[in-house]
């Protein structure tokens, strides 16, 4: 009940102030256009995996958008803390966890906006769906999961530092994790330390899971590592966020 009210409040806020959607939507669209435009020649390199660069980059841009959506969700809490509304929430009786779950649900829901935008723009660029409609389902699951994980991570930081400025830490963390993955090229294109880092980066598995339907058929061997990585990221970030929330409320 509390969780759905907080989630609904966030969505109503977006409806009331459409300008809030712009940064969430605009940056992923810029990414998809920039990456496909600048790096279109990558498909000419043997072993890239697709001859249409949109099939590779669309998922990456959508995931970037999901990270923004997650951080944006946590930012609303930062704003609530700064303007005193969060203190009033803490005064209400009952468990604090629904406050956190509601914000996470709002972020996951909010991530559908950039994902849909990126997919529509990519469709204009010739995005193919060899994996069928299930390919779309995997992208939405992956982006919602990423938004939830980064929202929880953002909340852990916000509950700790209680300022909007602290969100920059999560932005940098999100950007770095995305860049240190197979976002732009397959893993066998990488060498040295980057190859090692990308291999252990959980985002690589999430990208494999979300991208498989755009490169070919969906397989279980590509699916389960992505789901495990998403689950682990949400679980770890969730534990951190709950710990910091209890500390804040104490």
């Amino acid at each position: 009940m509390v969780a759905s009210a907080i989630c609904g409040r966030g969505m109503r806020r977006i409806m009331a102030r459409p300008t809030l959607i712009m940064p969430v939507l605009l940056m992923p669209l810029i990414f998809v256009l920039s990456f496909t435009g600048a790096f279109g020649s990558l498909t000419r390199v043997e072993g890239y995996g697709t001859d249409n660069v949109f099939n590779w980059m669309a998922v990456y841009a959508a995931m970037q958008g999901a990270v923004f959506a997650g951080v944006g969700g946590a930012s609303t809490t930062a704003e609530d803390i700064e303007n005193g509304f969060f203190d009033r929430l803490l005064l209400t009786p009952g468990s604090r966890v629904p406050i956190l779950v509601g914000t996470m649900a709002y972020s996951a829901l909010r991530s559908t906006i950039p994902t849909t935008g990126v997919l529509l723009v990519s469709a204009l660029g010739g995005l193919g769906l060899p994996g069928g409609l299930l390919a779309l389902v995997t992208v939405y699951v992956a982006t919602a999961g990423m938004a939830a994980a980064f929202c929880l991570l953002g909340l852990a930081v916000v509950y700790r530092f209680r300022t909007m400025r602290s969100m920059i830490l999560i932005q940098v963390c999100g950007f770095s994790l995305m860049f240190l993955s197979t976002g732009q090229v397959p893993i066998h294109f990488m060498n040295g330390w980057l190859h090692t880092v990308a291999r252990v980066n959980p985002v690589t598995n999430v990208l494999r899971f979300a991208r498989q339907g755009f490169l070919g058929d969906l397989t279980w061997s590509m699916t389960w590592p992505g789901l495990v990585a998403l689950g682990a990221m949400v679980a770890v970030a969730g534990v951190l966020a709950v710990h910091q929330l209890r500390r804040l409320a104490a």
Binding site: V45, F179, L180, F189
Partner: peptide, 21 residues
């Protein structure tokens, strides 16, 4: 300072085949 350096490091290690185009 850090972000452009990170990007340069990442691109250098992922575009080794690209410079042969």
């Amino acid at each position: 300072i850090v972000f452009p350096l990170l990007l340069a490091a990442v691109y250098t290690h992922q575009f080794t085949r690209v410079i042969l185009l």
